[in-house]
Design a protein around this nucleic acid. Structure first.
Lengths: 346, 346
DNA sequence: ATTCGTAGCGAAAACGTTTTCGTGTTAACA
DNA sequence: TGTTAACACGAAAACGTTTTCGCTACGAAT
């Protein structure tokens, strides 16, 4: 077991100083060609690589990005990571991920763990619990220590950082408009409680689309699911609530769901009630993941381009890291959604 | 913007030496109660946190684990990460992830990027391209530099490291035995080319199950899909091949697929041929992900417990990191699979 | 012969810690 | 009074780099 070789060891072996070795390896003109070649040959032979930690300490840059997300077993989030990793890697950065599990405490702990020098900046999406408690001191403290943050998807507006979001309102509006154009008269929305910003915004889009087409919203058509519960029978509860929705609205002929799971569950329930999709009921979901693609019938969805969101977030962060001299101004980038039409709509 | 405070700054402010501050904060008995309290109060006020990078350099430990996986947008892998993160975090470790995208070069580059001091050890699953080329020098080099590796799922045997695998043979065997017990006479397997070890092993399990029940394997019932192609029409190609399978075997009444996608595609094709599931054809998949759970009908699968694999891998690695004095011996832990029965079997 | 410039290299500081090994002061003891 | 022990603290090294500055020696210029 040969430990990694250091400058000091090379210096000792070749009987020169550490500075000489360092300079020789970086092709400094201070060093004679003789010495340079000698050092470089030796370094190559022993496969010398500068120690990253030492470099980080010296440069006070780690070339590492910290990602904090609520969960990783989730198509959207892993797509985002994928995008971040892509551009980060291209620019010589590593990514280190922390999971909050939707918990405020874990979010705080994770951030503290990383903020002490391990990383240069954060890319994150806020935990539900944090959104609920509306306690954002950890973000503000991190920022005030000079560590930039980029938020995506689940954001809160009055924090001084760049943000990458999807136009939830517009995306939802597009989807619901599609349903209306396809002839749906009674369109339900299955959404989350309002404290989840994306749920709230998509609901808003739903309402706006109705309004645009002079349709009066009906309270019984709006189902706000409480997704705080992560219990085992969560799925049953969900299914039950959706069944109620169908029972209360016999003439339901369109469903807009704010995520994949709600959408396919709605399809399942519809089938249970003997409705054919898309002939009797048309369904559109939000977030284009594996489920939508491979469901039967395949699901028409609003794609939010998770990969692109990740790429953009990484670009914003790295730009900020490498142009600290620029005056501070923060942008909110909106990634356009696309409606991907499949077989759950006509 | 107040930069993070350091020992040196505290020392200067309180007019004591750096060592005194350090000791005071670590409650050394060398320091008088007076000074200790003074220092701790000051440190708390300014929210002092030791700089991780400096600690890493000093201790030559980063308390960080490097993960290299082929892709992250994949239920199994994200489950594994989830498990790793869980136990890593509990033990004060961070995780830093690199994606190989199934490419040999990216795998090598990623490992080199992390091996220079950024992490203490690796947990990884080998890229397909690497398995194909059978070039494992980067693993061996890393190990010979004293950096432990734990491999999971896609492993290669003759590398000196701990391994966590699923009993692919046994899992497959269980599944196929189930089909046989359920009355299937003509059982097909949809698998990958043999260089992917998990595909090979699951095929082996399939054959063993048949043999156990005195059933002669038929070549036409074995479909080895080439999943090197990641093209856009990959799905179509897959579907086509499976259609051929059904056409060539009119009396096909059972399908064992080595992953979710193959399984639900098989269900799709079966439906297309007018076969009812599970009455006419029963299907079992491998890897219990979202697709299986939410497919219609829901899919009976062999669950490989990705989370548990991750947890075990992390435990092995951390143990090795924290007990370097122990004699070197490497274990291969086998995580048992479970057959999760759902609606695609009788 | 003296000054100057320059090529080639080394010493040392700095990044932020921890830890070992002094060192000075005071109190206790012979 | 002189010795010792305990106490409280500081200096410095070390982790592995990069970089600034200084030094030496030698050839060229005056």
């Amino acid at each position: 077991m040969k430990r990694k070789i250091t400058l000091k060891q090379i210096a000792r072996e070749l009987d020169v100083s550490i500075s000489t070795v360092s300079k020789a390896l970086r092709n400094s003109s201070e060093i004679s060609e003789d010495t340079r070649e000698k050092v470089q040959a030796f370094a190559k032979l022993y496969n010398y690589r500068p120690n990253n930690i030492a470099l980080s300490l010296k440069n006070r840059k780690t070339k590492t990005i910290g990602i904090i997300i609520p969960e990783i077993v989730h198509h959207f989030f892993s797509k985002v990571i994928s995008g971040i990793e892509l551009v980060a890697n291209k620019k010589g950065y590593n990514v280190i991920v922390g999971l909050s599990n939707e918990s405020f405490d874990k979010e705080v702990i994770n951030m503290e763990m990383l903020a002490n020098g391990s990383i240069d900046g954060f890319i994150l999406s806020i935990a539900k619990e944090t959104l609920l408690q509306q306690d954002y001191h950890h973000f503000n403290e991190t920022i005030s220590q000079g560590m930039p943050i980029v938020m995506f998807d689940r954001i809160v507006n009055d924090i001084k950082c760049d943000k990458v979001i999807v136009d939830d309102v517009k995306g939802a509006k597009k989807a619901v408009a599609k349903l209306i154009e396809n002839g749906c008269k009674q369109i339900a929305i299955i959404t989350t409680k309002d404290y989840v910003s994306v749920g709230r915004l998509r609901t808003q889009g739903y309402l706006e689309a109705l309004e645009d087409h002079k349709i009066h919203p009906k309270a019984s058509l709006i189902l706000k699911v409480d997704d705080k519960l992560v219990s085992e029978d969560y799925l049953d509860v969900l299914e039950n609530e959706i069944e109620q929705l169908f029972k209360q609205n016999k003439k339901l002929d369109g469903v807009f769901a704010v995520n994949e799971l709600y959408a396919i569950t709605a399809m399942k329930v519809a089938r249970k009630f003997g409705k054919h999709i898309p002939n009797d009921v048309q369904v559109i979901g939000f977030t284009d993941g594996v489920l939508s693609k491979h469901a039967t019938p395949s699901l028409t969805t609003v794609s939010q381009h998770g990969q692109k969101i990740g790429e953009k977030a990484a670009e914003l962060l790295i730009h900020k890291l490498e142009h600290e001299e620029e005056e501070e101004r923060f942008q909110t980038v909106i990634i356009e959604t696309d409606l991907i039409e499949r077989d759950s709509t006509k």
